[in-house]
Amino acid sequence: MGVKIAKNRVNEFLKYLKEEYILYAPVEENGVSKISKIEDTSDIINLPYRTQISLKPIFFPPEQKFFRFEKKNGGVEIEDYLPQEGDDKSIIFGVRGCDVNAIEVLDKYMLDEFEDPYYRKRRENAIIIGISCDYPKESCFCTAFGGMVPERYDLWFTDIGPHFYVDIGSKRGEKLIDDKFFEEASEEDEMRKIRRINSVETKINRKVKTNLHDIKKYYHKIKNRADDSIWEELGRKCVSCGKCNFICPTCHCFDVKDMTNIDGSAGERIRVWDSCHLYDYAKTSAENFREERKARVRYRIYDKFVFPVMRYGVYACTGCGRCSEVCPAGIDIHAVVRRLIK
């Protein structure tokens, strides 16, 4: 049996968490909704659906400094920034299922076969408190992948009227349940929760009508369309701006650069987000291996629905729909996938 928390106690609960943890929650800055570090809990906004910016920047910031170097005493001295990277305990509140699933995908890329220590430090001590959506955004299609409640979370909130029903998904989550704020939920509360989730998912499903749950089957279907004319068509449409990559909660490509002072005697090595849609992305000294735009468009779609399935057994798309929302050419990933699995 789960627990529940009265809606008017949530703010108190977050204040209580903030005493021990760094708190992240949805806010709006300059008209853009995102998940940011909270100084004052009254800054938190109540959205009925996901934020415009995903969780990705919290764990994988657009710019990550690796180390500092200085040419000194005829040599080079290096100061590693990794030890300074904070491993403070954090709580991320108000996250939607698509974004929690996306973080699980990032975990595959950065903590599974290959390990990124900067990501690990930020990710390891982060507790996720997610929340069911009230209704979908225009571009949402999470139900194609299994729905809006992820498999793994620490706590999961669902609106059941005057209370949030709270599912406990982990030991770390359980430790946060303090009876100052939570009370035992009844069977009826649980039924309300289930009905609530079903009704929202039905709403999403009504327009989505795509079901990709059978990963093996659909990955094969999409894989077999490698030489399809759709890529030519999308290649003509796409403007190679890379917005879809940057907004995507699972895209994790980066470039490595040195930034120096004016005489080059000292500087920092940084990584910055990169995009597989950009012309130079696969360029080497010999040639550009994805010079044609259609090859780059196909690569990105395949790197969501085919390649990660081959390597990690998961799609790298969770149906958040952000890329469709920001695409200046109007390419809708959901529509593309529907065509590919026809």
Binding site: D255, V256, Y281, A282, F307
Partner: peptide, 14 residues
């Protein structure tokens, strides 16, 4: 760019 299977630049066919 990274050499350790993360940055994505050298990916070919998965």
């Amino acid at each position: 760019k990274c050499g350790i299977g993360i940055c994505g630049h050298c990916a070919v066919g998965g």
